[in-house]
Design a binder for these strands. Structure first.
Lengths: 119, 119
DNA sequence: GCTCGCTATCGATAGATGTCAATATCGACT
DNA sequence: AGTCGATATTGACATCTATCGATAGCGAGC
């Protein structure tokens, strides 16, 4: 399994637009698509935005079920997907599971999709 | 149907991170998720990147089937999704359909997902 | 140790999605 | 008009996905 797309390129500032620089390879596309797919659901976007807008950018499951109006298992399911994709981190404190935003993951996506300035 | 997320806010430079500024409403989340979903497939990412890396940032279906290794109907299907989501535009010249990158659509997504500088 | 509350997992189900073969459409050229 | 090549649409199918109810696991406090 590839290290992590072209993170090295990005952090090294090689260029600015991996998507444009050259045709995406099949395996890189697979990895990138997987990360983007985690963002492609309205409920997950709302969960992410609620967490991001929360105090200390963290929230527990109990804070999230009511705002999105879905069952607790469903919310847990979405949080798991977001966590596995790297957008959230999970820490247990007492009985509660707190989810915190992981900004680097979002930055990676935005940098990957960003285009060079047009002429 | 909502105008278009918070494009006005973005272009007015209200802030920088719609996702973080406040919890996303259900209908805005729906629209944004739909646009992101168009990017959440490896084949579509590859098609987009091939078009972007092409001469004049445009390509026809015939240029695209072989690189991605899928049938012509499948490629047409993906191109339709990308076009309807606003990432590509389609113009016919003779028998060929040329697809061109629409950078604004990608910029909208990246701006929407971008976060404010951390402290 | 038991119970209680919070979270995760399981099983089921309806609906969405990616893919192809077959076919239709459309434009160009004779 | 008729044919041919490029693209789009249709129908079918297997797979994936979002959702829920039921249930299991896990900390805390008694």
């Amino acid at each position: 399994m590839v290290t992590m797309l072209e993170v090295t390129d990005i952090s090294a500032g090689v260029c600015c637009a991996p998507l444009v620089r050259e045709p995406l390879g099949a395996s890189d596309a697979e990895i990138l698509a997987h990360k983007i797919k985690a963002l492609s659901d309205p409920t997950r976007l709302r969960l992410l935005s609620i967490v991001a807008a929360s105090e200390d950018q963290e929230a527990c499951v109990c804070d999230l079920t009511e705002p999105v109006g879905l069952s607790q298992p469903t919310v847990s399911h979405h949080l798991k997907i977001l966590t596995e994709a790297g957008y959230l981190t999970r820490t247990r404190r007492g009985s509660w599971a707190y989810f915190r935003l992981q900004p680097e993951a979002l930055e990676l996506i935005t940098q990957f999709l960003s285009l060079p300035a047009r002429t």
